[in-house]
């Protein structure tokens, strides 16, 4: 058995003295593990950082074996984001969520394309909203995406502002009424054009985080979201609060 494909490193565990068991997310084989001789060594360790894009050849006698990867670097991503803490946290979160959520050896080419696209944007203006959309696409790809097409109460497509944590369906601001505080937020940029500020991104991650943890995580029998995802959400929520305070300060200055 042998195949060659490109892939994204989503996990790398040291195995033995200088080898590593590496999980790649590939377009045609999905999440696929393999042993990399020398993977923990000086030459390959920088290449096998989470989020790195590599060219891989997998070889094994039988298809069900772990097999051996031969890895060549294509695009290092982490080193380019070391000076940008939120973007680095997002890269770590993408890798951790893929390792956490994807079934082994099940191809998801559309999600692969979306993943490469969001990693290409990390660090550029507006990457936070792109990351939130990527989480939504991960949920949809695995069959756990909320239905944001129309209001569950009125059937209308206007003014969608909430999502029901129970049904996973959108609810308009008018229909939510006094139940609004029991519903999850739905920022407009997830259903169409809308502001993509830190507050909106934090709200989007609150919503996707709920479905990742309580729908997808429950189905996978995982107890909690990966630490990298939790830290990213905290980091972006904090920057959202700082930005809101700054906005309020500027508005107060203008009024004065």
């Amino acid at each position: 058995m042998e195949w060659t494909d490109e892939g994204i490193v989503v996990a790398c565990r040291r195995h033995g003295e200088d080898g590593a068991i590496v999980e790649l997310f590939t377009p045609s084989r999905g999440r696929h593990a393999g042993y990399v001789p020398g993977g923990a060594g000086r030459r390959l360790r920088p290449v096998l950082q989470p989020g790195a894009q590599v060219a891989a050849t997998w070889r094994a006698r039988l298809a069900e074996q772990t097999g051996i990867f031969r890895i060549e670097p294509v695009r290092p991503r982490a080193a380019l984001l070391f000076e940008d803490p939120p973007a680095l946290a997002a890269l770590a979160s993408v890798a951790a969520l893929l390792s956490w959520a994807l079934p082994e050896r099940e191809p998801h080419p559309a999600l692969y394309g979306a993943t490469v696209a969001v990693m290409d944007r990390l660090g550029a203006p507006g990457w936070q909203a792109a990351y939130a959309r990527w989480e939504l696409s991960l949920l949809r790809e695995l069959g756990f995406g909320p239905d944001l097409s129309a209001c569950a109460v009125t059937g209308g497509r206007e003014g969608l502002a909430h999502v029901s944590p129970r049904s996973g369906r959108a609810v308009s601001r008018a229909a939510a009424g006094r139940w609004a505080d029991r519903l999850l937020p739905l920022p407009a940029f997830l259903t169409g054009p809308g502001p993509e500020g830190p507050g909106e991104v934090a709200a989007a991650l609150e919503m996707t985080g709920f479905f990742l943890e309580h729908w997808l995580g429950a189905a996978l029998e995982r107890r909690a979201l990966p630490g990298a995802r939790i830290r990213l959400a905290e980091m972006l929520a904090r920057s959202g609060r700082i930005e809101d305070q700054h906005r309020r300060g500027v508005a107060a200055d203008r009024q004065a």
Binding site: R45, G51, A78, L88, A89, M235
Partner: peptide, 14 residues
Amino acid sequence: ATVEGQTTAHYLAD
């Protein structure tokens, strides 16, 4: 200078 090392550094900086 790894993702985990630098993530920890940023966390400590915070």
